[in-house]
Every structure is written in structure tokens, then in C-alpha cells.
Nucleic acid binder design. Structure first.
Lengths: 209, 209
DNA sequence: CTATAATATGAATGTGAATTCATATTCACT
DNA sequence: AGTGAATATGAATTCACATTCATATTATAG
């Protein structure tokens, strides 16, 4: 968690630092992000950085938690727009939330991705723990448990593998989406279409439905 | 490509260096791998390393190419065991080959993964180019093209997204597999079962078949 | 056995980046 | 304005490497 001094900063400066950090980490990933470049881009002195954060790790934690909170809001929003609480609806909400978040906060998304790749760091475990405590996870757990009990799912799927596949497929689609956006060819209908595609692939695979 | 001196080394020493490098890169990834640690683990002098390789990048290239060749062999083997050349058979062969490779050469697999994450490096592009020239890729391309033309696939899938999903799902399952192996609970039937699960998920999603 | 080339070695050098620290500036309050 | 606390600054320090180099050892051939 950042020091008091950071919280006390004028909003403008705070944002300047935050977006420089976000940009740097999104671009270079967790391991190669450099304090030197961040302070240069934010137009603050090197020493000031350590006035605000213990060290690099401290900054990472701040950004990771922020990303987590932000994404959670998108998830809740999507879930509140959703009609049912059946497996398909919950997956759809999760995908829609995730995709909107990734598209509208590309930097946060990339930072989170990069952090989730560092499977050994404490930070990774903190983020996983946080995600597992969310309402969405609770719902998913319950709904998947029921679906498995009812024999609705392929009998070899474990809940653990299910989650990995679910998030993996979502990540694949979000990255595809981000690339498409960078390439220029994107309109709003694409998001809905791709989201539905993701849901259908999870449920019914790549075959024509 | 390594220097002559490396090729001239006694097989035992060559393997010692190679496996130290493999281990180091698998453990710490492309960016954080350290020459110092490699030479320590391989019991050679720092200077010797530069007798064998131009620099770190040179070593990476060597390992990446080696991993590519090794994986290609697994793919060919799986494909040669396979009956048909239809979409399902080709996907199954690809998954089986990938999973055996990942399981039997965890370090090579992890190195390749880490390299494929560095989307900007030249090495990344070299590896992609290499993969795209393979027989398997050619088959997949043709078979997917036909399936799309025949309306067998979900109409929103593009070949590009198809490949991302295919490799993404495979990677998810391989990682699940590696984790399981590390945890101890693994026998040979698991591989076949999980491979089939992967194929069914790609084709028909998570629903009971 | 000698001479020459090839290989091995690890201390020395150079680099880039994180972190600290002594000093300067600004702020908040009287 | 005056005073102490909070904040800002960037040069100095450390550190962990990669890479080089002068020297030592080993292999090869005559």
C-alpha cells in the first residue's frame, strides 16, 4: 500500500504518476518495468517516487488491487444487467464484464495479465485470494457444482479445470479484441458478437450451433 | 547459433550446460534468466560461457530452435498414429503431441512458453514463422478452411481466432497437466482422457456429450 | 619433446537500474 | 514574518549482473 504522502497528493499529480506507472507496466510487464522511466514520464524526481511508495512491489500491489476493484465493478454491472442466475447467464455476464473492462481499461488489463503470470509471487496469491472471495466466484462455484451434480457437464471436467478454461478462453478473446481494436477494425456490435461467441464456445465448442 | 567450441564439447559437458540453461530459463523466464546462475549450476567458468555462445540471446535462439524441433517431432509422431485427416483427427493429434511434449519435456515447454510471451522480440517472430511452415499448420489451415466453407463451424469464428483458441485451450490443459504431475496424482490414462476432453471441449464445449 | 593452436578460467571492467540521503523547498499554522 | 513539519530533489551509493581480457591449461601435430 502506498504511503500517506501519495494519498495526500493533488489529484492531478496522482493521476499523472498513476498513468505513467500503468503505461510503463502495461508496456514492459511486471519484470521489466523501470522506476527510472516512470519518474521520467511522470515528471517527478526519483526520490519522490520513494516518498510515495515503499518500492516497486508496493506500486505493483497498489495497481493490482486497483485493477481488481475496477474489474469487479464491471462484473457486478454485467451481472446486474443479466436476467438469470443459471450457468449460461453467469458465464455470459462474466465474459461481458471482462471484455468491457479489457477494452475500456487496456492498461489495467495488461498489468493484471502480467501480474497473473508471475505464479510464484505473493502478489499473485493475494490477487487469486481476492478474486475467490468475490460474489461472482461464489455464484460460479455453486452453479458449476449443481451442473456437475446434474450431469450437465462433460464428466471429466473438474471445477478447477473448468475455471482455468473459462478464464483462459475469455483471455484469448479479450486479446483478440484488443488486437482488433489496435488494428482499427472495431465497432460496438463486435463486442456483443464476440461475447456471445465466447459463451457459445464454452458451452458448445466451435461447431455450428 | 552457438560457436563451434560448443559443438565440439564432450556430450556430457554439453548436456550439463544445456540442462542448466534449460532449468534456469524455465524457472525464471526469458527476461530474468542469469548467465551467472547458469554457469554456477553447470560448473563452468563465466568466461567459458562466452566461448560457447555469443551472448544470452544466442543461447535463447539455440534453445528455442531445439524446442521447436523437439515439439515438431512429437506432432509428427502423433499425426502418424492418427487415422484420418479430418478436423477432429488433426486437432486430436495436435493436442496429443503437445501434451506429450509438455509432460515429457517440461523445461523445454516452459522455455518456449516464456519466449512466446515476448511478442516483440525477433525470436518470437522467428518461432512463429517456423511453426507456420510446418506440415501440421498447413493441414490445419486447409481443414479449417473447408470446415468454414461447409458451414460446420460457428459462423463468427475467423481462422485467426480459431488458432488462438486452439492453442490457448491446449496450453491451459497442458498447464493443468503439469500442475497435476507436480502434485503427484498422475497416471498414463490421465493423458489420454485429458486429451480427449480437450478435443471434445474444442468441438462441443463443456456440455455433456 | 616442442611449438602452436584451442580451450578454460575468474578477476577486472562497465553498465543500468534501484534505493538512499543530505539538502532545498514548500506548507500550515501562529 | 517566523518556525517546524512535510515534501521534493537529484546526486551519490549499491548492487547485480553481462561481458571482456590477460593468463593458464590442455590438446594437437611435427
Amino acid at each position: 500500500m502506498p504511503r500517506e504522502t501519495f494519498e495526500n497528493l493533488k489529484e492531478e499529480k496522482k493521476q499523472r504518476i498513476l498513468s505513467a506507472a500503468l503505461h510503463e507496466i502495461a508496456e514492459n510487464g511486471y519484470d521489466k518495468a523501470s522506476v527510472t522511466r516512470i519518474v521520467k514520464e511522470a515528471h517527478i524526481a526519483t526520490g519522490s517516487f520513494y516518498q510515495y511508495f515503499e518500492d516497486m512491489e508496493d506500486l505493483f500491489i497498489y495497481i493490482a488491487l486497483e485493477a481488481g476493484r475496477l474489474k469487479a465493478r464491471y462484473m457486478q454491472q454485467a451481472l446486474s444487467e443479466s436476467a438469470g442466475r443459471d450457468l449460461e447467464s453467469v458465464i455470459r455476464a462474466m465474459y461481458l464484464g471482462g471484455m468491457r473492462f479489457g477494452l475500456e481499461h487496456e492498461d489495467y488489463y495488461k498489468c493484471a495479465e502480467s501480474l497473473l503470470r508471475m505464479k510464484d509471487s505473493e502478489l499473485y496469491h493475494k490477487m487469486i485470494a481476492m478474486a475467490e472471495k468475490s460474489d461472482l466466484a461464489a455464484w460460479l462455484f455453486q452453479v458449476v457444482g449443481e451442473a456437475i451434480a446434474n450431469g450437465e457437464l462433460n464428466k471429466n471436467i473438474t471445477p478447477e479445470l473448468f475455471f482455468k478454461l473459462l478464464t483462459g478462453i475469455n483471455a484469448t478473446i479479450i486479446e483478440y479484441l484488443i488486437d482488433r481494436k489496435a488494428g482499427g477494425g472495431m465497432d460496438t456490435t463486435d463486442l456483443e458478437t464476440l461475447c456471445e461467441l465466447g459463451v457459445q464456445i464454452v458451452l458448445h465448442g466451435i461447431s455450428a450451433t
